[in-house]
Nucleic acid binder design. Sequence first.
RNA 1: GUCAGUGUAGCUCAGCCGGUUAGAGCACAGCAUUCAUAACGCUGAGGUCGAGAGUUCAAGUCUCUCCACUGACACCA
Length: 508
Amino acid sequence: MSISITTPLYYVNDKPHLGSTYSTLAADAYARYLRLKGNDIVFVTGVDEHGQKIQRTAISKGISPSEHCNKISSQYVDLWDNWNISNDKFVRTTSKKHRRIVEEFFLRVKEKGDVRLGNQQGWYCVGCEEYKEEVGSDKEPICPIHLKKLEWRDEENLFFCLSKYQKEIEKLISNDSFIQPISRRNEIKSFVSNGLRDFSISRIDVDWGIDVPGYNGHTFYVWFDALLGYLSALIPENQDLGLDDLINLGWPADVHIIGKDILRFHAIYWPAMLMSAGLEIPKKVFGHGFLTREGQKMGKTLGNILDPQLLLEDYGEDAIRWYLLSDIKFGHDGDFQIKRFKELVNSNLANTIGNLLNRTSSMARKWFDNKVPKYSIKDTNNSLKELSLITIDEVILFYDDLYLRECSQAILKLSSSANLYLNETAPWQLVKDDANKELVAFYLYNVLETCRIIALLINPLVPNLSINILKQLHTEHHINDWSENLKWGKLLMGADLPNPHPIIQKIE
RNA sequence: GUCAGUGUAGCUCAGCCGGUUAGAGCACAGCAUUCAUAACGCUGAGGUCGAGAGUUCAAGUCUCUCCACUGACACCA
C-alpha cells in the first residue's frame, strides 16, 4: 500500500524562490529515504494557480492568467527537474482532474451540512487585500500601512463550519506526533483553545478560480482549492476516478512538509475539511523554518534574494543540499552564510568524506592490484564495523523523525572515525613488511566498506554524491534497497577498484 | 499589548532532574606526516554562558526584573 508525502503547492504569483526550494529539497530527501527503506511512496509537489493576486499580476503584465500560470508553472517544473527532485506527481490546480475533485469534495462537505452562507464583513484595505481586524472605533478608519481610508465591505460568502470540529481538532492536535516540531504545536494548541470559527471558502469578486457548483458568481477561495491539490495530485491523468479511489492511490499522506507560515491551515482547517468529507487525516504535518541571508530577511526590496537556479548553476546540487539540510536544524530558522557554506562543503564533503575514499582506494589499488583487498582473518574485533552498524541504526531513527541535521552529523562522525582509524592502524607503515599483508587488507577493506555504508546513508541528502562514491567502489547497483545492501560485508573482496577521483569539487 | 520561544567561543550549535578547571564541529595558530584532494591526525589559542538581582554550601542550569531578537494572537501563499 502506498503512502504519499507532499511539499506545499507553491503559489505561482512569482518565480520560484529559495524557500520553496528548501521545502522541496527536504521533502525530496525524506522521499528518497522512504523509498530506500522499501516503502511504496508517492511524492507530491505542484502549484497553486488561482486567486485574485495572480489575476492581477497577469493583467499588470498584459497577459491572461492562464498564460501567466503556464509560464511560472513551467519554471517550477524545470527547476525541480534541474535539481533532480524525485517527485512522482506535479499537480496544477488549474487541471481538469483538480476541478473535479474540488467539486466532488465540496458536494460531500455540503451534503454533510458543513457549508453555510454567511457574510464576510469588515474594514477592507484594497492595498493590503485583506480585512483589518482591529481598527479602533473610528468612523473612517485608516490602514496603518497604506495610510488610506478603509472600505466597509459586506460580502456574501460560503463558509465552512469549522466550529463544529472543535473537539475533534483538539483531540487530533493533542497527539504528540501530528504537529512537528513540538515548539510549533503549542502555538496551534493555544490558537485552537481560543475557539474555532467558521471560515469563508468562496469569493464573489474573483473570476480566476473554480466555480462553486450551484452558487453563481462564487469561486472557491484558496483553502477549498489549493489544499485539495494534495488529493487531486494522486489521481492519474485522464482517468475518471474520485475521492473514493484515493485510499488506493496514496491517501492519507504520511506527512505534509510545509513552511511554518501555513501550519495552521494544514493542522486545523485541512483536517477538519477532511473529516467533513469522510476522508482520512494525514499522519503528520511538519512546519519547517525560514531562511535568511547573512542575517537579513530575503526580499525584493532589499534586493538580496538568492535565486535557486543560479545557486544550482554556481555550486551544484550536492553542495547546496548538503549545506541546507546538514547545517540547519530542520524545523528551525536558518541563515544562509556564503562563507560558512563554502567552508562546510569543503570540510565535510571534500576533505572528510571525499578524501577518506580517495586515500583508501589509492592504497588498496597500489598494494592489491587495483582490487578490493581480500583477507581471511576473523573479524571478531572489528571496531569500525561495530561503529558502522551503530551509525546505521542511529541514522535510520533520525531519518524517521526528519532529523536531517542529526543524520548528517552522525554520518560525518563515522567518516571522521574512519579517518582516525586509518591514522591509528597506519597501513602504509605495515605494508612495508610482507608479513602484515593480511592485516593491511583487513584494515583497508573495513574502511572501504565503511565508505560504502556512508554513501548509502548519505544518499537521501546528497544523492548525486552518493552515487559518485558508489561508482568508485563499483557498487552503484547497491542503491535501491537498504534492507538488502545496508549490511556489513556486501563489498566484494577482489572486485575491481576504479581509479578514484574527487567526489566533489572544492569551492573557490 | 497578551502569550510562547530564543540569547553559551569568530560561525553553527550541544549542555538532562543545579555539583569537579563550560563542550563539539567549522574557522584560526603550531606540530607531525605522506596512503590521500596543501587532505588526515595531534596540540593550542579563543567564552565575565544577553544584563542585573535573588535562592543555595554550589547556577549556563532554579526565581524575579530588564534588554535584544523571533513566532502566535483567524482568512496573508
